[in-house]
């Protein structure tokens, strides 16, 4: 693989994390304009851990995810009773606060005679872990996709579990879910925490991939993009947001010949797509049909029992 392809694939992988984090919240019926904040927190936390404290990468990524998740829980609690536009704007306000705070954030120490660390609006350079440890671009690509595979597996399990059903139930009708005895507050904060941690891992990977972050990377554009990926790719499965990222970054690469006009073409295509498929390409109905087809042709698929029947009622058939 040449460097260029590795670079594009790495970008797709890293951005998938933040797309998945926005998607998880969409499942619970909340629109977040603020996932970039946790991406930023993860990026800075993990970057500081390796570049300033000399931690190993694995620990730094876990640390970034933990801090991202904790921050998301802290935001999730006061915004619990907000819905729809109110929630979206509250997360936007929080994310912008975080971005501006990173513009003010200076924490530099001297390592080997050079100042290292976040330097306000000038950004955080020299997150050199992959260079100091001779990790080449391809190895890092494998790492990104290994982690992404784990996360996707987690999503597959989530969709099959009681927790996944509860998330979608809350997304469908919160009051009804409450009447079923589901603790809404508990589950919404949990979803916020998981999605913050996901964005945090993505941020940590991003910081080490580019070796350089600055606050304005994490502005509203990134947040709205990550939200849009789920909607373009489809809200029926966790592969939806991945498909969205792939379409945005991948397909845009292939229409490079039209580089001056690509956002004009792409923006128009997305708008038209959403008219035809308002819940994305892989929406609940498509996923449901594929699942049914799969069960019919596959001899060893689970037979629809009480459990799966229930889930189909809950997740399919949204008008």
């Amino acid at each position: 693989m040449d460097d260029y392809l590795i670079g594009v694939l790495s970008n797709i992988g890293v951005i998938s994390f933040i797309a998945l984090s926005a998607y998880l919240l969409l499942l619970t019926g909340e629109i977040s304009f603020g996932q970039q904040a946790f991406f930023a927190i993860g990026a800075y936390a993990a970057g500081i851990a390796t570049a300033l404290w000399g931690w190993p990468l694995a620990l730094a990524l876990v640390w970034g995810a933990a801090i991202g998740g904790a921050a998301a829980v802290l935001v999730g609690i006061p915004t619990l009773r907000l819905h729809g536009l109110y929630f979206a704007i509250a997360t936007l306000a929080f994310a912008e606060m975080v971005r501006i705070l990173f513009e003010l954030f200076r924490y530099q120490i001297t390592i080997d005679g050079e100042l290292v660390g976040p330097d306000g609006a000038d950004g955080f350079r020299n997150i050199r872990y992959i260079f100091d440890n001779n990790i080449d671009a391809f190895q890092f690509l494998l790492l990104i996709y290994a982690l992404l595979a784990v996360v996707l597996l987690g999503f597959v399990l989530l969709e099959r579990s009681r927790l996944g059903v509860i998330f979608r139930m809350i997304g469908e009708d919160e009051t009804l879910a409450g009447l079923q005895g589901v603790s809404i507050a508990h589950h919404k904060v949990l979803a916020a925490g998981i999605s913050g941690a996901l964005a945090g891992i993505g941020g940590g990977l991003y910081a080490h991939l580019t070796t350089y972050v600055e606050p304005r990377i994490f502005d509203v554009m990134l947040g709205v993009h990550s939200l849009a990926y789920g909607l373009i790719g489809g809200l029926g499965t966790a592969l939806g947001p991945l498909l969205g990222v792939l379409i945005d970054i991948g397909v845009l690469e292939s229409i490079r010949a039209l580089s001056g006009y690509r956002m004009i073409i792409f923006g128009g295509l997305v708008a038209l797509l959403l008219i035809v498929r308002p819940r994305g390409l892989l929406d609940e109905n498509v996923v449901h049909k594929i699942g049914r087809f799969w069960r019919r042709i596959s001899p060893w698929a689970r037979r629809p029992g009480l459990n799966t029947g229930n889930r189909n009622n809950l997740t399919g058939g949204r008008p």
Binding site: P56, A58, L61, D132, N133, N134, I135, L143, A146, V150
Partner: peptide, 17 residues
């Protein structure tokens, strides 16, 4: 899967400076 991912991470350690 998580264990494999962690192993992959640890395998990435290398030389310094």
């Amino acid at each position: 899967a998580a264990a494999i991912a962690m192993l992959a991470l640890c395998g990435l350690e290398g030389a310094h400076a």
